[in-house]
């Protein structure tokens, strides 16, 4: 079970994969752009005077539709994978999922409140409408996670086992509440709710991108600083304390990172499963469990895989579009089963 690939080779491969995924994501869609046009249009977007008037359409598609969508996919994939690594480290379990601490179900509940409640109130002023859903989802995710963390604490210590169980209980509770909203919803809101729960990068805009981008940058800068502590945490909590780490603080930081990261990702793109579970797992099989390598590798791989999944979502039924959550589940679940049956979990 030794690492299959040297970190350096893996990073080169993942870098190339990401460039490929970025290019395909920018070039392909209902209107496919030739490689040269994509490149030139991208350069024009950066303000370089290349090409002529015939590129205006390409520039428009790229700048207004493809680029925000691609950046959103990149960020969502990276942050979900990073949070997956954090949770698998916190729970010392390679099968842990960022949803375990209740952030996904909380976000879904927040979204249900926003969609169904917003419709019942007759809608908010136009300006707030796009933000309301994301805001409620983000707050819902943070709130439920804070509750799970609170429930896990006793006498100044956080028990991850209690947190796990509290997460399961609160997820069930949130599921019941979402069910209630579903029951109360009319047909149109029901459709919005269902589609939101399946996740999509459709309708990406820079306004939706910025908050997530900031959170992702913060998480991506913060977690690697805790890579050594995460390694020590895998030995056990007392062992990490004996090695001089402030384990309580690290646990708090990991939960906070995950709540912010997954909360923002779900708020921007809906529920997208399996990236946070499968990507860190796959990377660990390739390069081993050292978080100094695992964290950046997972971020790169998560970004690439989500972009490719989004590409499949766009192209499989073109011109119609599949929700991306269906694609990641279709790819992720069999892979997960394969890992289980292979006995390498």
């Amino acid at each position: 079970m030794n690492p299959v690939i040297q970190p350096r080779s893996l990073f080169i491969a993942l870098g190339l994969l990401l460039v490929l995924a970025l290019w395909l994501s920018l070039a392909l869609g209902p209107v496919s752009l030739p490689l040269a046009d994509t490149l030139q249009a991208a350069l024009r977007l950066l303000g370089l005077p290349v090409g002529g008037v015939e590129l205006e359409q390409a520039e428009l598609i790229l700048g207004q539709i493809r680029l925000p969508r691609t950046l959103l996919g990149l960020t969502v994939g990276a942050v979900l994978a990073l949070c997956g690594v954090a949770m698998q480290g916190l729970f010392r379990n390679p099968l842990a999922d960022p949803g375990l601490v209740g952030v996904s179900s909380g976000a879904a509940l927040g979204a249900a409140v926003a969609i169904v409640g917003g419709a019942a109130l007759g809608g908010l002023p136009e300006v707030f409408a796009p933000y309301l859903l994301s805001f409620c989802a983000f707050i819902g995710g943070l709130g439920v996670t804070a509750l799970v963390y609170r429930l896990g604490r006793r006498a100044g210590e956080t028990s991850v086992a209690t947190m796990l169980l509290a997460g399961i209980a609160l997820t069930a509770l949130a599921g019941a509440a979402i069910g209630l909203f579903t029951y109360l919803a009319d047909d149109a809101t029901l459709r919005t709710l269902t589609f939101w729960n399946l996740g999509s990068l459709n309708g990406a805009s820079y306004q939706r991108l910025w908050p997530l981008l900031l959170v992702t940058i913060a998480v991506a800068l913060w977690l690697p600083r805790r890579a050594r502590a995460l390694n020590a945490l895998l030995l056990g909590e007392s062992e990490a304390r004996h090695l001089g780490f402030g384990v309580e603080r690290i646990k708090r930081e990991l939960v906070l990172c995950t709540a912010l990261g997954v909360g923002a990702a779900v708020a921007a793109a809906g529920m997208i499963g399996f990236i946070g579970l499968v990507v860190p797992h796959l990377m660990r099989l390739l390069v081993g469990p050292d978080h100094r390598v695992l964290l950046p590798a997972s971020a790169l791989a998560g970004a690439s895989l989500l972009l490719l999944a989004d590409l499949a979502a766009r192209l499989l039924l073109a011109p119609a579009e599949l929700p991306i959550g269906i694609v990641t589940a279709l790819l992720g679940a069999p892979f997960f089963l394969y890992l289980l049956l292979r006995g390498r979990v």
Binding site: M1, N2, P3, R92, N93, P94, R228, N231, A232, L234, L235, G236, S238, E239, H242, L243, G244, F245, R284, G288, P289, D290
Partner: peptide
């Protein structure tokens, strides 16, 4: 401190486990 049992459940290489002693 050497505890009685360990719960390490990740495929570190032996020298990586020992190197964790150097973390402080």
């Amino acid at each position: 401190v050497l505890p009685q049992t360990s719960t390490l459940n990740f495929a570190f290489r032996v020298e990586e486990v020992v190197a964790m002693g150097r973390l402080p």
